[in-house]
Design a binder for these strands. Structure first.
Lengths: 236, 236
DNA sequence: AATTAACTGTATCTCTAGGACACTGTGTAT
DNA sequence: ATACACAGTGTCCTAGAGATACAGTTAATT
């Protein structure tokens, strides 16, 4: 019975469709302040410590008072995401779809970097808020003048976004296999011990890391898109 | 104090380094059976219902008896993953790095499809088991004869794997934004209502979906890799 | 102004899930 | 034969999500 998952209610909250109060006393805070507080806790102490109790205490409220602002943990998480993603980038100043997408990737990467915990909760069947929705909209604008179909543009946007997200998750200690965390060094040891079974992986792990993973992948993706786009442009 | 996160202990369990019993009565099951049971529960009723209690009951044990097999929830999850990923593909029968990677992607995609819940737990600082480790090893073998550096090969493998994972998450109801779940239809409605703020997204959403997302992205990635590889091969 | 209805915040209780610990019974090595 | 190691049980504790009833507050209605 945990995590009140009502997407309709979440949507109403995120998109500002909640009916406004008329009669009673005015609340001490608003949802935005609640969200910011929760984000601050997640940033400084990690997402695990974000509980109704904890966020309420941070605001000087009891746990149940927090339920006046968000209907449950799921809604709290939703407004946290919406607060943390930040405003989507304006790419109108950049020329060329490739440069635009690169700038988009840079900005998206910065957002993930600011709030590493985002990677672990922006998963699952989910309603996005208006700010978050602005991100793919922005990325689509980068491809507006290309020969790709609408569907392909969205696919391309998801491709780039997923890559940034994935490389970010992989680079964040406490997020994905090898690289930062305590599990990473254990994995390295295991590979060294089992180099006979996993020769290729063991060899790579022995190599000094270059941290160009994100650039390499982005370049490959953009090269691939360019291939399709230019080909498409040719046979017109 | 929940979720006993001890990566060293998890590694020992996954890689078969647990000291074997000498004297007492023999256990009714082994870890593999526990893992399979938990996987079955996750497959049929979802990951949410996988609890120590539930898995124990499924085996005809009390909750605490289960702790004789796995030291905690974290270890249970770890062995579930190792059981669910299946055996890594053997690509030696396929010729050409591109065809090999395509086959790898197909197999990986099938694994994600078999156990949709995998996407939501294979996140975070994590120790992989030997079977799971076999997957990137297999993918690396596909690129062994190319002109890429070792590091680039790993980057390429992660790029492909992340893409398959991401498209899979997006296509699974109960996993990621738009497409399957109940949140998806709400998002569509919101976009229709706010078509003025998000014209590009609204336009795409109005378009009939093609479900070629995964192929499109994979092709772009492979095209991009091919570009780098052939370029590299040329100036030798 | 008085009244009333709506609303904020509190206190208390319940439920679920993970996990600690002590204990019973059993079987194998010495 | 016996002692030790280990499987499984029962009981207790903790944390977190959430329901509900209530007290206090304030703005709209009369």
């Amino acid at each position: 019975m945990s995590a009140n998952e009502n997407p309709k209610a979440v949507a109403e909250l995120l998109w500002g469709l909640r009916k406004s109060r008329s009669r009673g006393p005015r609340p001490a805070f608003d949802v935005a302040q609640v969200a910011d507080t929760a984000v601050k806790v997640a940033d400084t102490e990690g997402l695990e410590v974000v509980s109704m109790q904890r966020v309420a205490a941070e605001l000087g409220l009891t746990k149940m008072a927090l339920y006046r602002y968000v209907n449950g943990k799921a809604e709290l998480i939703a407004v946290m995401i919406e607060a943390a993603v930040g405003t989507p980038p304006d790419l109108s100043g950049v020329t060329g779809w490739r440069a635009k997408l690169e700038e988009y990737a840079r900005q998206l990467s910065a957002a993930w970097r600011r709030h590493p915990w985002l990677t672990s909760i922006t998963v699952g069947d989910r309603v996005m808020g208006p700010r978050e929705t602005g991100w793919p909209e922005s990325a689509l604008s980068a491809l507006a003048d290309t020969s790709l179909t609408e569907r392909e543009r969205l696919d391309a946007v998801m491709l780039v976004s997923s890559h940034i997200r994935a490389t970010h998750a992989a680079a964040t200690p406490g997020t994905q296999t090898w690289t930062g965390g305590s599990a990473a060094s254990i994995m390295r040891d295991l590979l060294r011990l089992n180099a006979d079974r996993f020769p290729l992986l063991a060899a790579v792990e022995a190599t000094p890391s270059a941290t160009t993973t994100q650039e390499f992948g982005l370049r490959a993706i953009l090269d691939g898109l360019e291939h399709t786009i230019s080909q498409r442009g040719d046979d017109e």
